[in-house]
Amino acid sequence: MKKSEHEWKSNGLPALVTVGPVAVILVFLVVLPLMYVAVMSFCSIDSYYNVVYKFTLKNYAQLADPDYIHIYLQSILIALLTTVICVLVAYPFAYLIARTKSRNKNLLYMLVIIPFWTNSLIRIYGWRTFLGTNGWLNNALIKLHIISEPLDMLFNRGTTVLGMVYCLIPFMVLPLYSSFEKLDVNLLEASADLGATKLKTLKEIIIPLTADGIFSGGIMIFIPCLGYFFVSDILGGGNADVIGNLIERQFQSGNNWPLGSALSIILIIITLLLVKAYQKIGGSMESLAL
């Protein structure tokens, strides 16, 4: 990053040539679509679902609908649970990878990375097959005579959170791993030397010094959770909708783009506020770029 910046400067091209193409791409792929969504959010539809380009705040007023508020709260609950579970699972795992020497380290690292490379939709469908009433897990449990009737495991908040954790956990493992790599072993020894038990060292030294990893992982998990509609679609079956489901429905079956746009704007604002809060507690933007 630093190095390439330096090279850019040293080859002395005029700013227009270097920044120009990037600016064009940004305008077409980010700025214009965003403006389109913003404008759309102040429009309305007529009874034939055609967009009427006339300023209105109707969409935003509609966002306060109690049904919607229920889903906002549910989204936040799902995102929080997912983030907390990801921290609890990823923390010891990242520690293990960072402390493992030899070839096993790469193996562990690959275990995290490889699922990253396969389509998450397919993997989520995999869970559905696995957990369904006629799925592998139920069949196996029945064969083992642990249960007699298949369990109803799909289509609730729990399975949705499971799917979210499964999709997003690499985003927690990787920043935590790099935090642990930076952690000086001497500090842990010094802590023990000064009378701290292992638990105290965890609380006083390890957690504070890896907090940046927890925060950047947390933000990279919490935000997508609000929008990952396909997970709650496939595993939640309408019982665990997140804000993403609301937006998707307006653009697809609801055919109400202005309302969908207003919801999108709200999601973007929430995202910006969260990132702002993250920066406020000292998180760096670079550690969000994996």
Binding site: E189, A192, T197
Partner: peptide
């Protein structure tokens, strides 16, 4: 364990807690 021994160490790298 180290924390049960009545000896203390000064590390070459100082090992001060940065936070």
């Amino acid at each position: 364990e180290p924390f049960e021994r009545n000896v203390n160490t000064v590390f070459q790298s100082y090992a001060l807690f940065p936070h």
